[in-house]
């Protein structure tokens, strides 16, 4: 009973986070379509260029999610506390979702812009490897029912897999790739970079996606805790019913 106020407070916080994330996402759509119009007249600009406003924030959330997996996995291996494992598992799931969105929206932009869906260049290939690594992480977790064992194994994969994140990020500098480098502020000397409206749309989308990640993660961790609790109660109920059945068969009949 004592946990009631804290539970309702966390539910309220979760609701506020959700409303903020969806509200900012709606605002970012308005900015993307009605404010960020500087590049509309440039070749490659216009509607196609607007894919960038969801593609890059998706990539940022994927980096963030895998960083959370990395830190939580280290904490889990050090402390063996279940909460770190739940955090790492939830974050990996969300990281895979957003990496999938990166790998879907990128080729949709590339087909009309480059004339091909896919190029085996450093940025695209290292992103695909990142996605496959954490897909393997989730598959590994489903192989065993023992949470401690799967948690330890997954933590090792979660830590090693994160080594690919800096490779993905710096690949455009380390190797010659077709992929554009990250967004930069407008440079009037060569008409490159983002204008004020575009920067506004971009950062609004970036914050919206970050809040969406936090919201998803909080919900996913809550579900993980609930699953643990239900499993524990079901085991308790099973044991208790066995005890009651045994006691019932052992009760001597009155008068005998």
């Amino acid at each position: 009973m004592a946990a009631q106020p804290s539970t309702s407070r966390s539910s309220r916080n979760l609701r506020v986070l959700g409303v903020a994330a969806w509200g900012l996402l709606g605002l970012s759509l308005i900015f993307i379509f009605f404010v960020a119009r500087e590049a509309d007249d440039y070749p490659g600009g216009g509607p196609l260029q607007r894919i960038f406003y969801f593609h890059v924030p998706s990539a940022w959330v994927a980096y963030l999610a895998f960083a959370v997996v990395f830190i939580s996995s280290i904490a889990y291996l050090r402390t063996a506390e279940r909460r770190w494992d739940l955090l790492a598992h939830g974050s990996a799931e969300i990281g895979v979702l957003f990496t999938s969105l990166v790998l879907i929206t990128g080729p949709i932009w590339a087909r009309p812009a480059w004339g091909t869906w896919w190029q085996w260049d450093a940025r695209l290939t290292s992103t695909l490897i990142l996605w496959l690594t954490y897909l393997g992480y989730l598959f590994l977790r489903s192989l065993t029912r023992d949470p401690a064992r799967s948690g330890r194994l997954a933590a090792v994969v979660g830590i090693v897999g994160f080594l690919d994140v800096p490779i993905v990020h710096f690949s455009v500098r380390w190797w010659r790739t077709l992929h554009p480098s990250g967004p930069t502020p407008a440079d009037p000397t060569n008409s490159s970079g983002l204008g004020a409206g575009e920067l506004l749309a971009f950062f609004t989308a970036l914050i919206a996606f970050t809040l969406l990640f936090a919201w998803f993660l909080a919900m996913r961790v809550r579900i993980g805790r609930l699953a643990d609790e239900v499993d524990r109660l079901e085991i308790d109920a099973g044991r208790a019913s066995r005890v009651l059945t045994t006691e019932a068969t052992e009760v001597p009949v009155a008068g005998t």
């Binding site: 979702l97 999938s100 932009w109 009309p112």
Partner: peptide
């Protein structure tokens, strides 16, 4: 397909992914 069409496909995929999760 036009640039607008590709944009709609991309935004639809992002929306479906987020809503699906």
């Amino acid at each position: 397909m036009s640039g607008f069409g590709w944009m709609l496909v991309a935004f639809g995929c992002v929306g479906a992914g987020i809503a699906g999760y």
